[in-house]
Amino acid sequence: MRTDHEIDYDAEKVGKKEMLIRLLCSPLYYDEQTRQVNIDAFDLRMLGKRPETYVSIGRKSELETEEKFKKFIEKGYRIWNTKKKDKYYGYGEFQHDKALSISNKIEVNPLKDEDKSHIGLFYIKDDKEYYTGPLPKNDPEILEMLYELAKMLSDRVTKIAAD
């Protein structure tokens, strides 16, 4: 069985029809002229010496009040850097099963020690493990998967107005 210590296997699974949210933390993640999301928005990265194991995703059903959504965006600011707040771009929404249809490597799971609104998009490497960051973009299959995820989001981006 494929395991990752960050997945909450006891929590309720993410529904196939659920709407999910990916925050775009920098204007460099979206090009307004050609209306494209940077595929890097779905890559895994190195966080210092620790590689990322999932892409942070928001769960819209848990963010239905303005207050909750604002807290979610604020959390994104804290994760990235509070000083970069003015450089935050926006977010894109997508349906869970739309992401799953892109590749059988994609899996969305609830996370341990996180509130229900924060879940993770994982990439399956084999039957034993998940990918860790960064993904091997020299592999056309990985490149294609990231391209499709970014394309899925590209027409569904909402810009966050600067304060």
Binding site: R45, L47, W80
Partner: peptide, 8 residues
Amino acid sequence: AGWDGNVA
């Protein structure tokens, strides 16, 4: 470095 607000 850090152009994404994180560790890029």
